[in-house]
Nucleic acid binder design. Sequence first.
RNA 1: GCGCCCAUGGCUCAGCUGGAUAGAGCGUCAGACUACGAAUCUGAAUGUCGGAGGUUCGAAUCCUCCUGGGCGCGCCA
Length: 554
Amino acid sequence: MKRQLVALLDKAIRASVATGFLPEAAPPFIEVELTKEPGHGDYASNVAMVLASQVGKNPREIAGVLAEKIDDAEGVLERVEIAGPGFMNFFIREGVLIRYLEEVIRQGDSYGSSELGKGGQVQVEFVSANPTGPLHIGHARGAVVGDVIANILAAVGYRVFREYYINDAGNQMNNLGKSVFLRYRELLGETEEFTDGCYRGDYIRDLAAELLKRDGERYRHMAPGEVIPLLTAYAGNAILDGIKEDLRAFGVVFDLYFRESELYREDGVGRLLQTLQEKGFVYRREEALWFRTTAFGDEKDRVVIRKNGDPTYFAADIAYHRNKFLRGVETVIDVWGADHHGYIPRMSAAVQALGYDKEALKVILVQLVNLLREGKPVAMSTRSGEFVTLREVVDEVGKDAARYNFLMRRSDSHLDFDLELAKRQSNENPVYYVQYAHARICSIIRMAAERGIGMPACGQADLGLLKLPEEVDLIKTITRFPEVVEGAARTLEPHRLTFYLNDLASIFHSYYNKNKVISDDGALTAARLFLVRSVLAVLKNALKMLGVSAPEKM
RNA sequence: GCGCCCAUGGCUCAGCUGGAUAGAGCGUCAGACUACGAAUCUGAAUGUCGGAGGUUCGAAUCCUCCUGGGCGCGCCA
């Protein structure tokens, strides 16, 4: 509906340009929105005012001319009013909105989707936690945000790849192997000193015990330089398997787990450095190799090859990003913890140095999660091993509640996650509010079927009977869905979907409490069943994008 | 010290590239099931949008400064 109005306005503006009323160079962003006040019609636009400031004419005059020029061939509009400083208020002709419901039902599972992305390739990299320990609650938020962004982009017509980057080649991995080794020796009766970089979680002990059971004492007297790489690989793989499993239980599945070590094996890092060298972006200083990121706005240059000859994490990461683009990805979306924000300028510099558009890399920062239980903070630290794992959260509060809770705020704002609240099946937990609406509608449809009332097909119900303000409100909200998805895709803001869902559920619940869907009036029952079924379709499609189930009974 | 993010009712947050009287949820108070599921609904109260300037017909939204919080500033990842 909104799109139709935008199209009408666009045509009207072009017609005005043709008559010379408006100058050529006026390509405004046409905004049309639902009104809050019935007196302002159904939809309103501020284009006239935007144009006014551009061309220096009276906004009301412009609005008048545009209204005049609107060519409403399909007869959508009842009338257009000019109001206030120059708003154009659109009054939709009765019955027009209602027909939209048939479109919703016709589209079914694909209602809300579009082809805006035109099949463009997008890669979303998220989680990417080092396999040095199980995923914890902090990773969970990033996992959901990345996953749902991917879903949303897919819904608007992009080809989306989900990827997890594994830093399996650095210092931290070495510490992991060392930690397992120390625990292993401990099990054999040795007393060991744990240094700062070591991991002390129980899972390290478990891995050591398993190792001992499997391989016996064979590592006991091997030199650390020999044994640690072996144990690093062993522990890294075991932990990664666990991570994959936990993610699956959380509803997150990746297309590819990309190993940093892969880059070295294929000499991706070497070729990258050569490329940068050829472009003149690297130089040597104090025995290290530096990348001139300041050429693209970073505050200082960054080392890519250390004094000791080892490439830095950054060097590998650039090679990885280059690899993404070489594979044909047009837009790369990285989901990072907000504490990595300082890393953005250098990564952006890297992408630009490689010759890609600055806009080709988008970074989503996800703020940390404050984990609470009954309002009290739960202490967390990976090193010490005191943390609540993703798996524990999923097991305790359930996938649906966990995911939904993580999507209720903008990614870049802090989020309190209260375990008790999240698992409480009450009105304090919004996920059930939405799911309940879905289950309720299913229940109505079941009830109708029991009474021998079938679901009307398109054209079988007299939708003109849907005249109540609440019904119109419900229909308007349904028509908003594709716009919400589109907006969420444009801004990469999944939380818009949860807010929308709450809105829709709320309007539905209210309607339900006031009006009977199934009544003695057969025609009205059919019309309302049709309406309610449309709501159901939207709830279902939206929940699917969030990776939250849509139960038929609760 | 420099840089990035944030500041909206008692609490937690929305506010859709500047729009009409700033909205939800929770909490509080008062109500609604012999009617399709009360995990629901109805009603009430609560705001100098951190502060001060500026741009604009119009600012929670954009600019500057200030205050108060979070994070970052490694040849760590």
